[in-house]
């Protein structure tokens, strides 16, 4: 589903690579934690999957397509098949929960009838039933992140990228967020989550890919955050 082949990314005006000859394979339906200290290249990895950034060398395949061969014109279609969640939620403050989720479908031109059907379903999936008409500032951080997950998942993406989704949320609430991500993963969606939250990684026992200074230093199935051996 995601295939990195010797990928190196150096940002302009930086001499140290953000990713340094990274090769990794993520299969369809996998749940993968991307761990490592701040600045180790986790966000860069996710941005490369979205083709928000371009690698300096190496090849990236996403959903069977080589990204460097994908014309700019086709990038939006790639992104429709990838959902994204961020630490800062990125909700529209002047739209309520329903409208925030529906926005993702409206802007890709989905018909109104379809939107009216699927948005309530996904709001229920993330556990926000009954709160569809709340505004973002009337929700807790955990609830806002659920809205963001509903928006990321409403178009049934093949891949869900989560960049430190629990970074702004207290540990108790984070468990709920992880449950939703697990639920999404069980529908067959590949989940790639960047985090440096050791407790969460340890509790989930999923595959762990650890980055340090842009290099993969560990790739372990059913791993924990710290060095297990």
């Amino acid at each position: 589903m995601i295939h990195f082949d010797n990928v190196t990314k150096v940002y302009t005006n930086q001499n140290r690579p953000a990713l340094d000859h990274v090769s990794v394979d993520v299969d369809k339906g996998e749940f993968v934690f991307l761990v490592g200290p701040s600045g180790s290249g986790k966000s860069t990895f996710l941005r490369l999957v979205l083709k928000e950034e371009r690698p300096n060398s190496g090849a990236i395949h996403v959903a069977g397509k080589e990204l460097s061969r994908l014309s700019n014109f086709k990038v939006p279609h790639l992104r429709r098949r990838i959902g994204c969640v961020f630490q800062d939620f990125r909700l529209l403050p002047n739209k309520n929960v329903y409208e925030n989720v529906a926005f993702a479908l409206e802007v890709i031109g989905k018909p109104r009838r379809f939107i009216r059907k699927v948005v309530p379903e996904v709001i229920e999936l993330v556990g926000l039933e009954g709160k569809a008409h709340r505004m973002p500032d009337e929700l807790s951080g955990g609830e806002q992140q659920r809205v963001a997950m509903a928006r990321a998942f409403v178009n049934r993406p093949m891949i869900l990228l989560a960049d430190e989704p629990t970074g702004n949320i207290d540990p108790a609430t984070s468990i709920g967020i992880m449950k939703v991500l697990d639920r999404i993963n069980r529908t067959g969606t590949t989940v790639l989550m960047a985090t440096h939250d050791a407790a969460i990684v340890d509790s989930m026992r999923k595959r762990v890919v650890e980055l340090e200074d842009g290099k993969i230093v560990r790739d372990q199935s059913r791993g924990v955050y710290g060095q297990a051996y």
């Binding site: 939006p76 990838i82 926005f103 993702a104 802007v107």
Partner: peptide
């Protein structure tokens, strides 16, 4: 957000 969810240019 539009860019992120794949709205066309």
């Amino acid at each position: 957000i539009m860019r992120l969810v794949g709205a066309s240019n």
